[in-house]
Nucleic acid binder design. Sequence first.
RNA 1: GUGACUGUAGCUCAGUUGGUUAGAGCGCUGGUUUGUGGUACCGGAGGCCGGGGGUUCAAAUCCCCUCAGUCACCCCA
Length: 415
Amino acid sequence: MQKIRTVRGTKDLYGVEILSHNNVLDKFCKLCKFYNYNQICTPILEHSEVFTKSLGISSDIVSKEMYNFIDQGNESLVLRPEGTAALARAIVANSLHQENNKFFYFGPMFRRERPQSGRLRQFHQVGVEYVGKTNYLYDLEVIILAEKFLGEIGIRDKLVLEINTLGNEQSRSSYNKALKEFLINNSTKLSEASKKRLQKNPLRVLDSKESEDQEIIIKSPDIKNYLDPESKNFFESLIKGLDKLKIKYKLNRFLVRGLDYYNHTAFEYKTSEIKSQNTVLAGGRYDGLIKSFGGDDLGGVGWAAGVERLVLNLLNLKNKEDRMVCIFSTNENLDIEILKILNDIKIKKKIQISFLITGNLKKKLSKANKIGAYGCLIFGEDEWKKNQIIWKEFKTGNQKLIALNEIENFLNKDL
RNA sequence: GUGACUGUAGCUCAGUUGGUUAGAGCGCUGGUUUGUGGUACCGGAGGCCGGGGGUUCAAAUCCCCUCAGUCACCCCA
């Protein structure tokens, strides 16, 4: 029979991979709680408009990557492609900002792209959002959390923080206008791809990798000359703050974010490796997004990181697994006695116990050794008669007898 | 969506210019007389050669289609 595979771009998570995922999630959650962020879990299914309205119709995510479908009730639904818009929706729907304004979340996201290294159709993100008045201090606080998080999982040193500003709405649109004009004047020298980008979203031309585009991009107008006083002040304060906090960063005026809702701050943590999917964590400010969902005129800033991409950079950061011991008998008649022990036992310590039933004594010992047991509890007939059990430690090969009623103590204390 | 490379046992891979019953290592499993593992020896199971079509007396091998994986582009976390 032909095996049924997972859907393209999705995968079963197990073994060391899920240990790494859990390791990342665990550290992320602990940090978020420490900084008083509140967990929120929004549905994977959303109404299509949550994303079509906010991300921008021209964005690739909306125009070709969303899993959307009409359900049996004739509603247009999507598997969420990202977290921020869904969170903004949730904040408005539940009036959440009144009680609390810092959130963290994690879970699967879906985008129908061609899979490759660091890119899946179902992938997992962790993210935070800070909702409130427009204030650069919030941006800093959110970046601090990113710094701590990446440091905690041990990859901060492999990454570079790149940062840029898009200015507020007015600045952004006046810059957009100037940029477009400049690019149109130079359009003959642009690559075919960039000519298309120019029509859809001129900003996107700035992060083109085509060599022919590079020459022109370098001469393009600088956003900094188009910032109004408010935008300029905001960005300068933010940069001063980063200096004060001794957070290393690199200004990159060509850094733009793909989604329409961003303004002011945009930042990305990238690996220095040449790998293509090198953005591991990215975020920015999205003033106006909440209002667009019918909420108050509140700003917001946040970031999201791809768990798979983080894990790719973790490399051999092995989780220390709990100590495992095997328990088995020399005689199958005694197996039920072992189950009785397992049923009665109360374990407080982080250990694992594995009950083996097949094979003779030799096979069971061999099996225990193969699956990486620290030692074995062996129940033989002679010992059974004396209410004892053998403890054998593999590393030393030493054995000793333990009274049956002492097993619990032994496992909890002596191991 | 575009392009390149790759699909043979649970895993890593051999398989000659098309030619008997498709191989190895690891893993799994049984044994090497009684109750002691890691290292030895002997057996066993396990393959629609990714799927479909075509060429041929004959296809894992050649051709076409398709699906999937890997990597890159587009784009993004």
